[in-house]
C-alpha cells in the first residue's frame, strides 16, 4: 500500500511517498511555499519521484501552514502532530523536537510512545525563524546556505538582538558600518536565533534526546549555537525538511488501514 504526505510550508513544499507505512519510496522538496505554484509542483513531483500514479496511492494527508487550502488530499492534520509522528519514526528516542521553519518555530514534547503531549509556538514575530536568517543573509550579502560556513570562522562574539527582526537588521547594519567581521556577525545571528528558540524549548520542558527539524536544521551554525545555549547535544533530524511530510504519510497509512 502506498500513501503520501505533503507538507505545505510558508517558504517550501515537501512531500514523501511511503510504502506500507515504513519505506520511503520517493520525496520532493520545492523551495516555494503556500500561495505559489509550490503545492501543485510538489504534488506532481512526488508521484514522479516514487514512480506512482494517483490511482496507485491509497491515501494522501496534507499538513503545514497551507494545509487548509490544498484540495488534493484526503485529510489534513496539523504540522505539530505530523512532525511528532515523523521524528518518532526516524528517531524513536526523541523526547523534544525543535522545529524551525520559514516563519515559525515550535518546541514539541513527545511521550516515549511518540505521541505529542505538549507544544509551544513562537508568537507573532519572525525572530528565531528561517525568515530571520534570510533577512540577515541578505544584509551580509551571502546565500542563506553559506551562513553556517561563514560563522564557523568567527573569532569574536557579537551579540545581536533576538527580540525583533527589524531591530536586528539595523543592528547588523550598524555592526558592519563599525567594521565588524561578517564571520562574527554571522555567529551572532546564529546565537540570536538559538537564544530565541531555546526560550521556547525551555517553556515546553526539555528532555533528551532533543531533535532539530525544519529547514533551519540544515544550518550547522544554529545547531552549534543551540547546543551551546542548551548545554546538551542537539541532534539534527536525518531529513529535517521532510519530517512533517513523512509524519503525514504515516498518518495517511494509519488512516488507510483503519478504513480498510
Amino acid at each position: 500500500m502506498y500513501t503520501i504526505g505533503i507538507d505545505i510550508g510558508s517558504t517550501a513544499c515537501k512531500a514523501v511517498a511511503l510504502k506500507d507505512g515504513k519505506e520511503i519510496v520517493g520525496s520532493s522538496i520545492i523551495q516555494t511555499g503556500t500561495g505559489t505554484s509550490g503545492p501543485g509542483r510538489v504534488y506532481e513531483d512526488v508521484f514522479k519521484a516514487a514512480g506512482l500514479m494517483p490511482e496507485g496511492v491509497s491515501r494522501i494527508v496534507v499538513t503545514g501552514y497551507g494545509r487548509l487550502t490544498f484540495e488534493k488530499a484526503d485529510n489534513q492534520i496539523s504540522e505539530l502532530s505530523c512532525h511528532a509522528k515523523g521524528v518518532h519514526f526516524l528517531m524513536p528516542q526523541a523526547r523534544t523536537i525543535i522545529d524551525i521553519g520559514g516563519q515559525d518555530a515550535k518546541a514539541l514534547k513527545l511521550s516515549p510512545a511518540g505521541t505529542l503531549t505538549g507544544f509551544v509556538m513562537n508568537d507573532k514575530c519572525a525572530a528565531g525563524t528561517g525568515r530571520f536568517l534570510d533577512v540577515m543573509a541578505k544584509i551580509l550579502e551571502v546565500d542563506v546556505g553559506e551562513l553556517a560556513e561563514l560563522s564557523s570562522r568567527s573569532t569574536e562574539r557579537i551579540s545581536i538582538s533576538n527580540v525583533c527582526t527589524v531591530f536586528a537588521e539595523s543592528e547588523v547594519i550598524s555592526q558592519l558600518a563599525a567594521g565588524k567581521k561578517r564571520e562574527d556577525i554571522a555567529a551572532g545571528i546564529h546565537m540570536s536565533v538559538a537564544n530565541r528558540v531555546a526560550g521556547l524549548a525551555r517553556r515546553v520542558g526539555i528532555e533528551p534526546d532533543v531533535v532539530l527539524t525544519g529547514g533551519v536544521a540544515q544550518n550547522l551554525g544554529v545547531i552549534r549555537a543551540m547546543s551551546e545555549i542548551l548545554e546538551m547535544n542537539i541532534l539534527p533530524a536525518p531529513m529535517p525538511q521532510l519530517t512533517g511530510a513523512l509524519g503525514a504519510a504515516i498518518f495517511a497509512y494509519d488512516e488507510a488501514i483503519k478504513l480498510k
Partner: peptide, 26 residues
C-alpha cells in the same frame, strides 16, 4: 490534563488554527 496557552489579542492570531487543531489532536 493537557493545557493550551492562547494569547488573546484583538484578532485570532494567524497560528490560532494550528495551535487549536494540534491541541484537539492531542
Amino acid at each position: 490534563v493537557p493545557c493550551l496557552y492562547m494569547e488573546i489579542d484583538q484578532k485570532a492570531e494567524a497560528q490560532a488554527q494550528t495551535r487549536i487543531q494540534a491541541f484537539s489532536e492531542i
